[in-house]
Amino acid sequence: MNTQDLQTEEETCGMSRRGFLGLLGKGAVCAGAIVGAVGAGSAIGASEAGSGKRAYQQNDKQFAEAVNNPPKIPEYNWNDHQWAMGVDTTRCIGCLRCMEACKMENSVQMDANHNRTWVERYVYLEGSNTALIDSQADPKNIANAGSETKFRFDNRYKDVKVEKAFFVAKLCNQCEHPSCVEVCPTGATFKSKDGPVLIDTTYCIGCQYCVQACPYGARSFNESRGTAEKCNWCYHRITKGLNPACVEVCPTGSRIFGDRNDPESPVSLFIRNNHVQVLKPEMGNAPNVFYVGLDKEVV
């Protein structure tokens, strides 16, 4: 099946798929609203998220509390786990429900330049040796969606011949040797024993050296809190035995999560059964997000 066939197929079943994804999205939004309602304080519902204002589900104090003191489960011991993630780019359809779920779950600022996860689209036009790259934060995609809070890729390639196209989901790599932790002057960001790199938002001074140091552009700066911001693989969820929000909502199973200490966990199987790669291995950061189906053009 060539790309054009794929496109036609997508067009024909687009409605139903979109409807299904919409439902998923609504589910995530509802979940967010519930969390927000429980959280009270500065909780802003999902309806306000569309207005372009920066929306939060939790107030700063609650957020810090959630990061610093994740819900204790009697049996959770961070020495017993080694979390890892896999991304199968051959399965990603660029629906961006992962982004939506992440923004809702983690109170990420809703504008286009604050993302804990995002999806990149790589398109080789016919006869071209290099890929055209864009993400959902591309101005054209935002203009097409009509808002920064609606995550959509536009259909800009419909009139040109596409040779090869694929999506690559990006998020914090929770590196073994994280540059961000290395450069943090206060130790507010640290590598947890079970894998994720966390931020103590009550101790961060907001110098943004970590934002500079991350080779993957995974960090951003939360102006309202005055502190750094990044993906922590939904630490509050994984320590309860749940999947990160992005993994939970992915309709195609292109994001795989699990414990590497468990040889039968989805991620262990994914790494064992595939030739996996990591992003920018030359940086020496030893990422913990493993990819299948990367391309020479992936940045």
Binding site: A112, N113, N115, Q136, Q212, Y216, G217, R219
Partner: peptide
């Protein structure tokens, strides 16, 4: 959002 050409990581449009 800082204007850009080519491809930049989405978080980079906010200058640290």
């Amino acid at each position: 959002v800082t204007p850009f050409v080519g491809y930049v990581y989405p978080n980079e449009t906010d200058f640290p």
